[in-house]
Write a protein that binds this DNA or RNA. Structure first.
Lengths: 264, 264
DNA sequence: CGCCCACTTGAGCTCTCTCAACGCCTGTGG
DNA sequence: CCACAGGCGTTGAGAGAGCTCAAGTGGGCG
């Protein structure tokens, strides 16, 4: 972990991890990396200090993973929960042709505990879309956490409802919006979600995804994604460069995409 | 209920309700209408006689609803669970333009208990796509049922996982398949789901949906749905008329759609 | 009998895709 | 230190899937 922060060029994806007052050395315990998860859960159900401390303790399980690392294999039953602390991971499906559909993002603070809670196999793969910080929490430790912290368990359940709603929203997005609208909607959603974990400043956030990733998310070709982004830039709705996204006209963007944040 | 069975022309949607040995008069208690739910749940977790009896008792809450009836309004918190016994209902979203996206079907045996379990408002509308038989089970009665019958509660939880997986599958369907493939995939899924509740015979089942419904499900125009269906007929994969669907070449259809039933 | 709704068919048009090429940046190896 | 390969973003052009508009058919219901 310490080594990660000193990686030659800081991947924008990771920057959220160490945001805020810069820490010379990683300060364990009250580390900001637990922040995303705590902030998110706190939004669903207020946590107390003990809950927060328990979440902070999860840092012990955090480790960096390379881009394209498969975190949970399709059709397997994971014996641990996956928690993303920095970077984006995806839930994706693939066709025989190799074509990929990303059905969800796991952004900092998101997690997957399917295997642990239900020991049901997953119908998709979970994969790091970039260099990430991910905690793999063993089943027993995870169940223990839920058992001791009912507020966390409650918040996680509500988070799961939001995830479900997001899946529906994505389906509606791909099903009834044009390419440009889809992109706008996705960018609005990400602003909202990243905002709740403190990774949006001044309508700006890091968008470390590849245009191909976006394409596989929105059901478009990467070429078309490129043009769609240009259209949004031309209309002065966003500015995007070096994986840094600026929402120039939030209201107009939301109206254009018919984005309603209620589902999150 | 009794009156429904004598409705002038029997809607194909309802036929599954009274399928099997025809009953002169509705026989309460061991009525086949509870069958769909019991069969489905039994597939997720084996039920015993008491569980079955409890499900059969739900018949008291069943009532017919007209097509287009809104069962749960968007943004409302339902104080009852919705259980579909016959016919199809949909979860759908609408755009300002009036365009609709169906994000899920509720077929016989399916239910929605979001409001009851979480009192969270729904991000979509639940609506009868045709004349249906639907039970509205009050919160207390529903919670009581779950409390007294842990096997049912377990089965319902697993059913919810399958629902989630289905949403992902639909997203992948719309995101990376052609119109014809999407339709084929949907028809395969429905064969599977209707099969588990005993509504498929000889590769045939009632498909009481409108082409417009199918269009709004698959993210296509109704005109194109029409042509897609013709293509499937031309290729001798299906035959469809009078809302009765025959899968002529199940294996070929599944291969064409790359359908894997695992997620259900 | 007539209306309404679902299905059908045709034609032109648009959005999006595919193929292809090129520039840029980065990491790698000589 | 430089050459090179690979990945990503960008641009152009032609092709194709799917859309919209429009008209017509047919069946069920008032």
């Amino acid at each position: 972990m310490g080594t990660l922060a000193t990686t030659a060029v800081m991947d924008p994806a990771i920057s959220g991890f160490a945001r805020g007052p810069r820490q010379a050395a990683p300060a364990p315990g009250r580390d900001r990396s637990a922040c995303a998860l705590a902030r998110k859960l706190d939004g669903f159900a207020p946590l107390d200090e003990q809950d927060r401390a328990a979440l902070a303790d999860l840092i012990g399980y955090v480790r960096p993973v390379e881009r394209h690392t498969v975190l949970v294999e399709q059709d397997s039953v994971a014996d641990h929960a996956i928690i993303v602390f920095a970077g984006f991971a995806s839930r994706d499906k693939r066709r025989a042709s190799g074509r990929r559909q990303i059905v969800a993002y796991l952004i900092p603070g998101d997690l997957c505990d399917r295997g642990v809670l239900h020991d049901y196999s997953l119908d998709h793969t979970i994969e790091a879309l970039m260099h990430c910080l991910v905690a793999k929490v063993p089943r027993t430790a995870y169940l223990d956490l839920l058992g001791r912290h009912p507020r966390i368990a409650l918040a996680l359940q509500r988070a799961r409802l939001a995830e479900e709603a997001t899946a529906h929203e994505w389906l509606a997005n791909v099903g009834m919006r044009s390419g440009t609208e889809r992109m706008a909607h996705l960018l609005c959603e990400l602003m909202e979600r990243l905002g709740t974990v403190g990774q949006v400043t001044d309508g700006q956030y890091d968008l470390p995804l590849t245009q191909t990733d976006l394409a596989d998310t929105l059901g478009l070709s990467s070429v078309h994604v490129n043009r769609v982004l240009q259209a949004l830039r031309r209309d002065k709705l966003i500015s995007l460069g070096g994986h840094r996204l600026r929402i120039l006209a939030p209201r107009r963007l939301r109206e254009f995409a018919e984005f309603e944040a209620g589902y999150l």
